[in-house]
Nucleic acid binder design. Sequence first.
DNA 1: TAAGATTTGTGCGTATGTATT
DNA 2: TAATACATACGCACAAATCTT
Lengths: 88, 88
Amino acid sequence: MAPAIDYDSPTPPYQQIAAEIIRDIESGTLAVDRPIPSESALVQRWGVARDTARRAVRQLRELGYVYTVPQRGTYVTDQTAEDDQGDA
Amino acid sequence: MAPAIDYDSPTPPYQQIAAEIIRDIESGTLAVDRPIPSESALVQRWGVARDTARRAVRQLRELGYVYTVPQRGTYVTDQTAEDDQGDA
DNA sequence: TAAGATTTGTGCGTATGTATT
DNA sequence: TAATACATACGCACAAATCTT
């Protein structure tokens, strides 16, 4: 369900959060074109600073899992429509 | 225009960046009371860490070339209005 | 039209840990 | 030890766009 950040892990907090969201995307918990939790939600959900939440989202974006609409939110990418992520 | 950091130089990166900004100020490229590039911009522009960008800005501030308004930005100082920089 | 909440964008201040010189 | 540099993290504040009421 809701694991917490493992500060003893060599994996930085933002990557742990990103990994969890990736699991939710791949399991279908977060559907295509549906918004992922907002930065504020991640801050409360994980008990981290906004900077950390933003890093997690940024990584998801860089990996092609999500896309962000300014002032709107960040949504799950339709992987099947991607053509330059390289590992589909 | 846009030189890169010379890591072989004895001059540390933050000083190279500061020197470049000073040139922009003295040439008028960066006008009085106009903002200098943000920390994030410097990070991307020079490919350095935020810490390095911050050091460059700090040095400019110590030299009187700029003044920082908390949570807003850093702006070019009006040299002609200075009275404690000593070399006007 | 206006107010308020929400969300991302941006910027700054600060701190810790690691590595290199 | 000290200075420098990089990566990460936490806190705070304001701007801009969106959405709701």
